[in-house]
Design a protein around this nucleic acid. Structure first.
Lengths: 196, 196
DNA sequence: TGCAAACCGGAGGCGGCCTCCGTATGGTTG
DNA sequence: CAACCATACGGAGGCCGCCTCCGGTTTGCA
């Protein structure tokens, strides 16, 4: 139950290496996508491959850590948006921001797909939960407002966003994605009480 | 310009091997996804790895051939649907069928993503064109009918469907995808002349 | 200062990718 | 039917990335 608390503080050198690996990974992922060779990342970080594997036993573990902060930030933005504009606008803006953010992080897309899946590794569970919570808060508010229909499942929406994001790494993707998010939003509005 | 016409008939043994490879590939892809080792496919087909590479110089080439027929069939169904029901219903049904079909072919999803991309290999261009044509015919009819808004881009829709399909290989995916397709359809209907 | 626990690094085994070239075979011609 | 050659075969081999394992090193505590 004390999952996120470090079991025991890392030794100084270990902490140093871990940080270096994370920095190298973020950089490498940004340049070459999540498929970059792990050996390369270790090299960039100036540590041996064994060290990388000790800190991050799987590629996924490394990827999750590399993107955790960014995803957290986006999720936390939901509360701010909700306090600044009507719920349906907040939902639309958040989804757009989500999609924009992913577009800016090459390699993140595939990760989010995994994170939005149900059965996937426990490592992704945390990300998934945070994103679902963010979506849920906005959906609830929008439903209460009568701005969108009431049969919306946050998990559905998350999966769809994840799917949309899979199509990044394309030139005109950003505009396309925005259009599709808007279309999705219209689908949500269709048949809502306020539209009657 | 004579792309699809075989430059010259294959020698009998070559044709035999090619067919065996295709059959083996379809089987292997269905079992293990498109990432199956090519060596394994060659083994299943009872040919050497060299032979595989001669017939299909890249993995994509093999994948495209393996799925060509299926995709063609789905695309051709658009005309039938259009002749049997109102355009918007046809569009919805086609998109649903599309998504269902992909669900039944493990590994196809990733391929369609590539096919729905713009810049991708020429091999996918043909698939992409056929799918766009199918979508276009139904969209045009639905717009003419006043059933959906008039600012719909088939490429957008295709990409979105591709995105949705990326989430196959999940248990409750099929129902989820159907819900999202329906939601998408509602987005298309939103603000259409007939809905005013 | 000394020692145990924690940590490091990279060699090495495995398996997949793809190329290259010596060998085999189908098909054609006389 | 024989002989020839374009076409096709197959797999060895070089390369690279994955991941494990363990002898050696470093850190921090007593």
């Amino acid at each position: 139950m004390t999952t996120s608390v470090e079991a025991r503080a890392l030794r100084a050198d270990a902490q140093r290496n871990r940080d270096a690996l994370l920095i190298a990974a973020i950089e490498a992922f940004a340049q070459n996508g999540t498929e970059t060779s792990l050996e390369d990342i270790a090299r960039r970080a100036g540590v041996g491959i064994g060290t990388l594997y000790r800190h991050f036993p799987t590629r996924e573990a490394l990827v999750v850590e590399a993107y955790r902060r960014g995803v957290d930030t986006v999720c936390e933005d939901a509360a701010r948006l909700l306090s600044e504009e009507p719920p349906d606008a907040a939902l639309l803006d958040w989804m757009t921001a989500f999609v924009d953010y992913v577009a800016s992080k090459r390699g993140l897309a595939a990760t989010l797909k995994q994170a939005s899946d149900v059965g996937h590794h426990e490592l992704f569970a945390d990300m998934r939960a945070k994103m679902l919570t963010a979506l849920q808060s906005m959906i609830d508010a929008a439903i209460a407002d009568g701005a969108i229909r009431s049969d919306v499942d946050p998990a559905d929406l998350l999966r769809t966003l994840g799917g949309l994001c899979m199509m990044s790494d394309q030139p005109e993707w950003k505009e396309q994605a925005r259009r599709m998010v808007a279309l999705l939003m219209d689908g949500l509005r269709y048949g809502a009480p306020a539209a009657r």
